[in-house]
């Protein structure tokens, strides 16, 4: 799912730290933002804005971290509002609801592990490219 590839230049220590922080930011936001899924996106977006004029390596990883948060925001928002409906009796507790929560949890967990993995490796100056999000970032982020 995540592949370590060579970036077209070797990032310096400062760039590696910044790029790694973009993943750390979304990690911290996941923990602090629960159960409000929008918090993760806002935190990652704020970090992205702060670094959009940074070097290519930093911008690239900030963008990848931000994009991954978008898809999570969608599924987490549905989970949040569905849970509220169940709690307030507007919807019944059902197998579909529990299955949805487990699915969302598994996707979040995968994203969480991938984020830690990326934070560690980008800190070492390695370029971690995620499946789908990596290609999307390549398309959006110009050198």
């Amino acid at each position: 799912m995540n592949t370590i590839t060579h970036f077209y230049y070797s990032p310096n220590e400062y760039e590696s730290e910044k790029a790694s922080n973009s993943y750390l930011m979304s990690l911290i936001a996941v923990i602090a933002g629960l159960p409000f899924p929008i918090i993760n996106l806002i935190a990652t977006f704020a970090f992205y804005l702060g670094n959009r004029k940074g070097t290519y390596f930093v911008r690239w990883h900030c963008t990848q971290a931000l994009l991954s948060q978008f898809s999570l925001l969608l599924m987490n928002s549905v989970a949040f509002w569905w849970s509220i409906s169940v709690l307030f009796g507007l919807e019944n507790l059902s197998n579909s609801f529990i299955a949805y929560l487990i699915t969302v949890f598994l996707f979040n967990l995968t994203e969480f592990v991938a984020t830690i993995y990326s934070a560690i490796n980008t800190r070492k100056g390695l370029h971690v490219k995620w499946w789908f999000y990596g290609d999307l970032t390549n398309m959006i982020c110009s050198s």
Binding site: N95, A99, F132, D135
Partner: peptide
């Protein structure tokens, strides 16, 4: 671009397949 779209479709399919599969289990 085609490759990205294909990956997106696969990702969405994976999500719904997992959800549908898990819904078959009687969690209640």
């Amino acid at each position: 671009m085609k490759n990205i779209l294909l990956q997106l479709v696969l990702l969405v399919l994976l999500f719904f397949a997992l959800w549908l599969g898990l819904s078959k289990i009687d969690w209640m």
